[in-house]
Design a protein around this nucleic acid. Structure first.
Lengths: 189, 189
DNA sequence: TCCTTTTCTTGATTTGGATCAAGTGCATTT
DNA sequence: AAATGCACTTGATCCAAATCAAGAAAAGGA
């Protein structure tokens, strides 16, 4: 069984019937490095779970790309805002490494949660996690210095530095690659 | 009838039965200037609609307060993340001006949306707005310079400069009061 | 009202990170 | 193995905003 499904069952104790229903609507998608999952102004029609690989969420601006988030195995990927409202996305999402994704169509997700109210809990938890993540990130961008953000990221998600090109990490921290390089030197990384 | 209820009905065409149900569980709360609505580490047990007044959402840090958002008439106030999960909040919310709020308990909201599925649409829209707001703010904090953020805020929400003490606005923009003061002078405000 | 306190402004100085500019290391291709 | 192109590092300079330091102006309180 797919890793993600296994974890869903382990955490949410979904019934066999529910698991079957989920598996029936699920699609598998492979993405090559740098391939897009979602482009700005497109509606996010499917939500994905990452089985293997890593992705990044970013904004295009006239002069640069701004990287806003990273996704790894076992996490949800997509613009929750665009998916829920079925309106054009303001963000882009692309693969950093080769990825294997499990996809769920909007209509299928709605039908599933309609049929199995208990799955709504799962949907709600996902939503809440997004909100909490956004709240924390907003706070960090306002109250922490770039150097503090670097140290926090290093402590909380050291694997990011192993798997993600540093220019994306720099963008995520809101600094230039040069500054990130200097922080790394300073902290003997 | 309360302004907020009037607007809900106008936008969502809620039935009389639904409006009565809403009014029955609704409580009114008056807050004095600087009074807290929600403190860090408390669970956000009620969600409020502002009938009159203004409020701010902020974080405490060892050396300073960081203001993250403002609320005015006709908007929802509370930590959506804490309210939905019924877990301790990481933010504080307090009145800036005298406020009149309409309160809804968590259990009442759940019961209402259970009984009237159409009200879920309303709840979902509120949630989506939060997500979109957070997404945009995150993007702005990463990609815009402080001066650009100032100009955007001035254009989109000029009333903030009229009603909110400038030190809170500075904090919201992620700058010092001195810098905000200089921007204002520069743009002849 | 006057007095106190807080908030906002203005000026001088400092500083952290950006920018500009080479250079180094690594992978991919030929 | 040489050549080409990226990604990253390192150094020098510059600049926007922070900090430090007085004042001026508003807001509250007696």
């Amino acid at each position: 069984m797919k890793q993600v499904l296994f974890n869903i069952q382990r955490v949410f104790h979904t019934s066999n019937e529910e698991m079957n229903a989920i598996e029936n609507v699920m699609q598998v998608l492979f993405l090559e490095k740098n391939q897009f999952f979602l482009k700005e102004n497109e509606v996010c029609k499917t939500i994905g779970f990452i089985e293997r690989g890593s992705m990044r969420l970013f904004y295009e601006t006239p002069d640069k790309e701004v990287c806003n988030d990273f996704f790894f195995e076992n996490s949800l990927v997509g613009s929750v805002a665009s998916f829920l409202t079925q309106t054009p996305s303001i963000v882009n999402i692309a693969a950093i490494e080769k990825c294997e994704l499990l996809l769920f169509e909007y209509t299928d997700v709605m039908a599933l949660t309609q049929k199995f109210p208990s799955l709504k809990t799962l949907a709600n938890i996902i939503l809440q996690e997004q909100l909490i993540r956004a709240e924390k990130r907003e706070a960090s961008l306002l109250k922490d210095t770039p150097e503090t953000r670097f140290k926090n990221l290093l402590e909380e998600h050291p694997k990011i530095f192993k798997r993600i090109p540093l220019r994306y990490v720099a963008s995520y921290l809101g600094i230039t690659p040069e500054t990130l390089s200097r922080y790394r030197a300073k902290f003997l990384l």
